[in-house]
Design a protein around this nucleic acid. Structure first.
Lengths: 133, 133
DNA sequence: TATTGTTATACTCTATAACTATA
DNA sequence: TATAGTTATAGAGTATAACAATA
């Protein structure tokens, strides 16, 4: 059971990494962009989401910004702070990445009987820890 | 369904990475040691298993060997080739790591009804691609 | 004083290209 | 010639420590 969960995890992460690599992105860069699809976080919030030190996020954001995938937006209220947002280009690539991940994983799910899918998804979700804040 | 699979994968990999980090190992180093529990591969075979370039494996093995976790063993037949094997220390740490991963994931599985576990494991395994050779 | 973000620095991980030794 | 492994090199990713600007 635990073995199956771990094997599946490595398998899925492998697929996601391959999709990222196809866009010359690291797994972390793709995660970063996925987060930015729904949020416009500060650097510190981003560090919390990703579980990284703030100084690491500086580099990640630098490299992605240099490629035109995202931008730093002045915060306004707190002048120490910046918000990070996808550019139009970044949004296109993020959407494409998500679609490719779905496309790559879909064939594996054809072996799961349709009747089982909802159940499997629920079981998997129930095993997730509540995200730490 | 796909979302649940991906979320679960990141969650599980996070747990495995944390266990690795607790032993000051990277995810790859821990994977390497897990492979060596059951195999005594050549450097090239290791590169295939891990999906890395041979030159990357040289560095991984160097660092782990320097910590006394594994050793290069002369192959005998083909004098170009070496085999990689865990040391006694390495075997202890690999076993401990596996136990800690199981221990860290077990609490999450308590929410899965006992009757569903076999079924969930089978479903997850059925989604795995046959490993590329 | 505390927080936000960056910089300086160092190490791991990874790949590409070139090399040595052996086959 | 081909294969096994290493070395040289370069860049990404990461953390720690120290810093400047702002709160």
């Amino acid at each position: 059971m635990i073995d199956a969960l771990v094997r599946s995890a490595f398998d899925v992460i492998g697929v996601v990494s391959a999709v990222a690599a196809a866009h010359e992105l690291s797994l972390t860069q793709l995660r970063l962009m996925a987060i930015l699809r729904d949020h416009e976080p500060t650097m510190s919030e981003l560090a919390d989401y990703l579980g990284l030190d703030r100084s690491s996020v500086t580099g990640l954001v630098d490299r992605a910004a240099q490629r035109g995938l995202l931008t730093r937006v002045p915060h306004g209220e707190d002048r120490r702070s910046v918000r990070v947002a996808l550019t139009v280009d970044g949004r296109v690539i993020a959407a494409r990445g998500e679609a490719e991940i779905a496309g790559a994983l879909a064939p594996r799910l054809t072996v799961v009987p349709t009747a089982d899918r909802r159940h499997l998804a629920d079981l998997l979700d129930s095993t997730l820890q509540p995200p730490p804040r």
